[in-house]
Structure formats: C-alpha cells, structure tokens
Nucleic acid binder design. Structure first.
Lengths: 146, 146
DNA sequence: TCGAATTCGTTCATGTTTGAATAATACAAA
DNA sequence: TTTGTATTATTCAAACATGAACGAATTCGA
C-alpha cells in the first residue's frame, strides 16, 4: 500500500501536470532565446523540418512534422514567407499541393537560432547528468502512444 | 567520448523537443477528456486551485497557481463566471482585490472533470511502472529552476 | 497627514492554435 | 468518361495567452 495504490490518478495526474508545466516552461525559455532572431520555437522547428528534408516540403507534411493542424501551418507559412525565410513553390506532381522551400536567408536564420538556443539548453539541463537525460528520454518515450 | 560529448546541444535539444511535444500531447488528451464537461485542462486547474485553497482566492493568486498572467485570468474568470461555476465576490480586506469563489455547480464540475481525466491518465501511463513515474517526477523536478 | 510608489483588476491590441467549412484537384470504380 | 470519394490548402470564428496601458485603491516614507 502506497501513495499510488491509494490514489492512482491523483499522483499520476500531478505528474502529468508537472510534465505539462515543465514543457511549457522549456518552450517559453527557448522562445526567449530565439526572440533575438525574430523566431519562436515553433517557427524554428518548421525550419528544422525543411533543413532535415533537404528539399521543399508540402504544407501537410510540415504539419505532421511539427504536430499541428494544417490551418496552423498555412498561417505559419504566411509569416515565414513575409519575413523572407521561406517561399512557396508549386508542386510539379500535384496541383493541389504547395511546397515550402527554405531561402538562403532561411538557412542562415535556422543556424543562428540553433546557436541562440545552446545556452538556454545547457542552463535547463545544468542540474541533470547525462544518465539523467538518457533516462528522461526513455521515460518520455513511454508516454506518447495513443 | 559519446553522443552528448560530441554534440552537447543537439541531443539535449532533441530531448527538450520531446519534452515539449509530450507535454502538449498530454494536455490535448486531457482537454479531449474534459470536453464532455465543457472544461479544458486550464479551466480545471483553476477550479482545482480553488478547491485546494478551500476559500475564495483573488485573481492574482489564481494567476500564480496556474502559471499565467493576470489578464489571462480575468478572461478565464469571465468565462467560468458566465458558465456559473465560479462567482466574483468582494474582498473585505482590500477593495482593489476581487475574490473568486467556487459555486456548488463549480464543485460538481470539478469532481466530474477529475473523473473524466482518470481513464486518459491511466492510458497515458499504461506503459509506465510506478518506479518509472517516480523517476520521471524526479527528473522533471531537476529542470524547472531559472 | 500628504504624496509617491506599488499593487490590484481590467481593457486593448496582438499572436498562437484549433476545428469546421470550402474550393480545387486527384484518384478509384463503374 | 463520369461519378463519387480523398486529399490539398485556405479562410473563418473561437479559445487561449501575452504584455502594455489604465484607473482605482493601498501602503510607505517624509
């Protein structure tokens, strides 16, 4: 008999709350770090997806990459395009589809963003050892299934 | 020499990304579970703060409890009040302050919300053992300092 | 006691995220 | 081909969140 047996959801829900809170905190710290580049973490993740793909990506794919709905990516793309770090190009294979392509400026901003997050990342993990990080990754991995 | 030594920010940033992603996932699952009660996780946490305090709480305190700015709580309180699950009462000790009080309906909704989240919570942790949850709580606790 | 600084809640403008509805295109089956 | 079903990106309304500016009330120091 222990805390979890007595009150299984209470402790687990508290943990979930801590997880959500910590995630939000981490994101806001990264947002702060990226503000100097006029980026947010979501914007940066979009650029990261394009860099990793190493070729233009359609909006639907991008939505999957950054875990959000398509309408969100449309707005995101509007902004990134207005800032000149991304541009829309036609998809030669499907006229419904629109591909997003990183501009040269986009590549530079992506790199600068990565650099800007370094200090914050180190600071956030300053009380954690490497085994801690490995364990955390493992434990988080057990949570994301439907 | 290992992955983290070679590329300290890369692995750590990936972990941070996983953390943020998992936190968002958890919140959206809880939101889904609470939708039947016309609640969201943020709304529920507000009710939870009131229940725990066991007495009316001013808006500023509430903002601290749920980690957001005051203006957000104002809007939140407007909605909760319109739904009849909280009400604003004057603070006898400070005429600037406005206290938020849970209604009887509010207590019922809070309870129903807790119940609604049980299944989701169990499902999210279905691949985790109790030691896993304890370890996770510990590891997350190492991250939230400024 | 008087005045300055602080704290309280609210309003407003702005930005993010979602989901429903829509038009255009693609595709599969008859 | 034609018909019906999928999928594409977009628009729109709504919920959520932030920060600046504001009026009202409190508090602290001279």
């Amino acid at each position: 008999m222990n805390e979890f047996d007595e009150c299984p959801t209470e402790g687990a829900l508290g943990l979930l709350t801590l997880l959500i809170k910590t995630g939000r905190l981490a994101e806001s710290r990264l947002d702060e770090a990226l503000a100097s580049e006029n980026l947010t973490f979501v914007k940066w993740r979009t650029l990261e997806a394009l860099v990793k793909a190493n070729s233009p990506v359609c909006l639907g794919e991008l939505a999957k990459s950054i875990n959000c709905v398509k309408s969100n990516v449309t707005q995101l793309a509007d902004k990134l395009q207005a800032e000149g770090i991304v541009k829309r190009v036609a998809d030669p294979n499907d006229r419904r589809s629109i591909l997003i392509e990183l501009t040269g400026q986009g590549s530079r901003v992506h790199q600068a963003g990565l650099k800007a997050m370094e200090t914050t990342t180190r600071k956030l993990f300053s009380s954690s050892t490497e085994p801690d990080r490995i364990a955390l990754r493992d434990l988080l991995g057990k949570l994301d299934g439907r």
